[in-house]
Each structure stands twice: as C-alpha cells, then as structure tokens.
Design a protein around this nucleic acid. Structure first.
Lengths: 249, 249
DNA sequence: TTGACTTTTGCATGTTTGTGCCTCCTTGTT
DNA sequence: AACAAGGAGGCACAAACATGCAAAAGTCAA
C-alpha cells in the first residue's frame, strides 16, 4: 500500500470515528507503529488532523458530529433548513434521518406543523418533543454512536412496511456521476432502503460536500427530487439541473 | 480513552450539570481520582473551568434553570442510581426504559461498563454516546412524547425476538397488592412484554410512588426481583420483603 | 537491464508522557 | 480541637514517542 493511500485512509477513518489510536491503526493497516506515527505527524503538520498523545483527533470535522462545540456553519445550516421548510406541507409523511443539518431543520419547523415523521435518529425524534400535532415513529436498530442513527437488519426490515412522501436525506458527499455516498456500509444499506420507499427525496448540501465521494455508494444523484444548496456556484448547480434535479438556492 | 477526550467529556458534563465532584468523575470515567484532579487542574489553568475544593464549577455561561422535573430531587435520583449500579455487572444484557431516574443511572454508569443495552427510549440511548463498549439496540415504535419512549404494536413485536438479563423498570406507582401500574394502556402493554422476556426485574422507588395505583396494571409486585428504595420507612419495606422481593436501601 | 540515487519502512536506542499509588499536607466540618 | 475528606508532590512503571541507522523498495537516466 502506498504512503499517500494510507494517509488518505487514516483521514477517512478519522472522519468516521472522530478519534484514532496509533497502535490500533498499526494493526488495521498492517504497518509498524513508527510508520503510523510518522503519518500522523505529517498530517498534523499539514493541519489536516490534530495529533495527541497515543493517537489523533479530527480537527474541524467534515462529517456530521454531535458534540455541541462547533457552531461551524450554524448560519449555513439554518439557511439550508429555511429553504427546505418551503417544501414541507401539512399532512405529509416525512422521513428524516440523522445529521446536524436535519436537526436544525427540525428545530426550525413551526410548532403548528401537523404530520407524521419517521426517523431512525434519536436526536431527531427528541427534536419533536414540543410538536403536539406530529406523530413520531421511531425505527429501531443498532445505534451507531458516531452519527446517532439506528442501523442494521432490524432497521431495514421495519422500513419494509412503510411508505413516505418525502425523505429528508442527510448527505455526506455527492458527486454528479458517482452519486450519493457515505463512509459506512450499514449506513448505505439503510439509506438505500429508505430511498426505495420514498416518493420524493430532498438533499441539502454546501460546497464541501459537492463533487466528492466516500466509500459506499447509496444511490445515483438523479434519484434526488430536490437539491438545496448554499454558496454553490452556478456551473455546479447546472450539472445537477441537467440530471433533472430541482436545485433550490 | 484518550486524555483529550476525557477532558472534553469533563467539560461537557460540566456544561450540563454545572458542577462536578472529583470522586464522582473518577467512577464515571473509570480513572483514578489523581488523574481527574490533574485534568481539573489543567482545565482550570487553561481557564476553561473553575477549580474548587472537591471538584470544579463551570465558568462561562451562567447556570440555567435546572430545576428537577418529576418532583423528585436530583440527589434522590442520584442515590437510587448509585445503589442500582451495584446490581449491574459486565456482559449483562440490560433493558432500560424511560424516566429521569433511569437516565441518571445511565449517566452514572462507568464508561468502562461493557455489555448490551436495549431501550425504547431515545434519551436513554443517547446517554450511551460515550460508552465505547456498550452495544445499544433501540426498539422502535410510536414515540410517546410525555415519557419519551417508543410504544405500540411495533415495539411489542420487536421485543418478541429478544431476551434480557435485567430489566431496569421505570416505575410510576406500585402497591403491594395491586402491583405495578402506569397511566396508559400502551405503556402497560410494552412494560408487560418486556417483563415477560426478562430474567430479573429491578425497580427504583421513593415514598410518593409507593402504595398507590394508576389506571393500568403492568404486573404483580412480586415479579420484581429487586426494589431499590430511598427514604422509605421500615414497615413498608417489610411488606415488599414479604413478597420475596429483595429490598435495597 | 543496470546502477546510482531517493524514499520509505522497520528496528534498536534512549527519552517523555500519562497514570496509579504512596506519603504528607491542607481544607472543611462537626 | 479533632477528624475525615480532598489535594500536592514524589516515585515507579508501562506505554508512547523521537531519533538514528540500515535494509528494502521505488525512481530514473543511460
């Protein structure tokens, strides 16, 4: 395995797991701890990761994360959510999966909203605590703590008997050709299943999520009905519009 | 667990609870008190927290209105939880349902605890965010916002295929003759189902929950294996002991 | 292909860091 | 004032680290 390749992999792992232990990586990547340490040192020096004793932490997490400390782009998320709200009408059956952008959307959803919400994310479910006219249906499964969503075979089976009008999909990465991708297999399976039971699919993205791909492909880009953007240039939006996706900005 | 991670966690806990006790943190984070003290000293030196005798206080934002829901004081709940912790051993399969007392128990459960937790309560599930060695399985269903638990036919069906070693039951009301009761039918059905798949059942109660009944009966009192009490007089405890329940105080 | 050169890797070496334990001192409480 | 609980500083040990070095692997021109 090439050095570049290995370092990219370390960054990917870090994006998924938010921390990494040198001795651990040594085993997983089958190289000596010294090599890992050298990699970590380089990546830290490039400013990509934060080196700490016995491992490394990710810096400004590109992946959704539930620690409260980042108000990174609160405004951006809020703007995305505001636009998404226009698509949501009373009496809809919504599926909302995890992610801080989706959580922000829930928080901005008026308390008067009346409808049904299906979710596999405990934080999203809890976000409806004060919505008296929303029936929340939680889909169970094995909790993935990094992204706080329920995944696994149980999740897929429970979804089998459901149908939803609109799927508010949490998007990690999207590329016009390769489609929507996520860093883990189980997450991909569940998202794929949800997509298959949804009439319309909505994604919200910022610059950094566009035109990149992750490990596991969920579905082709053109399965999206709406793509909501913020600070994205015209050329890129055009690419998605050519795929018959309604781009809202 | 990494040092940085642990310190971040201390800050997080401090943000929620506005004060921390060193000896307490030692148990919850599964490190020695010396290490905690060193952490607190460092964080104080960085100006992040305010070190005081026996613990630390939060610096920045003033304390929120942190008054207790549910009448029972924070301290009482904490005491109940502490006693319950003695019953919990590694490698158990626990079922924990909703309620603030149970949530407190989760918060006090050491991070070193290794086992499986099944729950139908989103807040309980989220309480395990930092327990690396705990597999959390969420049981889905329709979210009941009053008590933040999933209920309904889906919940019962999902439970059908599970077995648990110990059920930490959230108790509303209990009467030696009439048994354990709850205010809603659906909650009763789910609790009944869980009780039927559990080897041992644990309940935690204070005075006000004892010798009263609610609308729907869950199960007879003597299905309990352990009853954990706080501020309950001897005569009443005796009544439960006569039913072959182990009363812990 | 060969051979000179660079890069990358693993190992051996001392060194530093993190943690727990111990002893003695300080603080708060009754 | 007495006493328990909390804290400071030192010691010890293991884990993690930096450094130098040599072998292995890759690069490139002839």
């Amino acid at each position: 395995m090439l050095k570049q390749e290995r370092q990219q992999l370390i960054v990917d792992i870090l994006n998924e797991e938010h921390k990494v232990i040198a001795s651990d990586l040594s085993k997983r990547l089958s190289v000596s701890e010294d090599t890992i340490r050298r990699d970590l040192k380089e990546l830290d020096h490039q400013g990509i990761i934060k080196r700490v004793h016995s491992g490394a932490l990710r810096k400004g997490p590109p992946v959704e994360d539930f620690s409260t400390r980042e108000g990174i782009s609160f405004e951006t998320k809020s703007n995305l959510a505001t636009k998404a709200l226009e698509l949501i009408k009373d009496d809809m059956v919504l599926m909302i999966d995890g992610g801080t952008t989706n959580l922000q959307l829930v928080h901005q959803l008026p308390l008067s909203f009346k409808g049904t919400v299906i979710t596999n994310s405990p934080p999203i479910a809890m976000g409806f605590a004060n919505h008296e006219d929303v029936e929340v249906i939680m889909v169970g499964g094995t909790l993935f703590k990094q992204s706080m969503v329920n995944l696994g075979i149980d999740t897929c089976e429970a979804l089998d008997s459901m149908r939803v009008d609109m799927y508010i999909m949490g998007i990690y990465k999207i590329d016009p050709q390769m489609g929507i991708s996520v860093p883990s297999m189980s997450e991909a399976l569940v998202k794929k299943k949800i997509a298959s039971i949804s009439t319309e699919i909505v994604g919200m993205v910022t610059n950094d999520k566009l035109d990149t791909i992750s490990n596991h492909i969920v579905c082709p880009s053109n399965e999206l009905t709406y793509l909501i953007t913020e600070n994205v240039n015209q050329d890129i939006k055009k690419m998605y519009e050519d795929l018959d996706i309604t781009v809202l900005d």
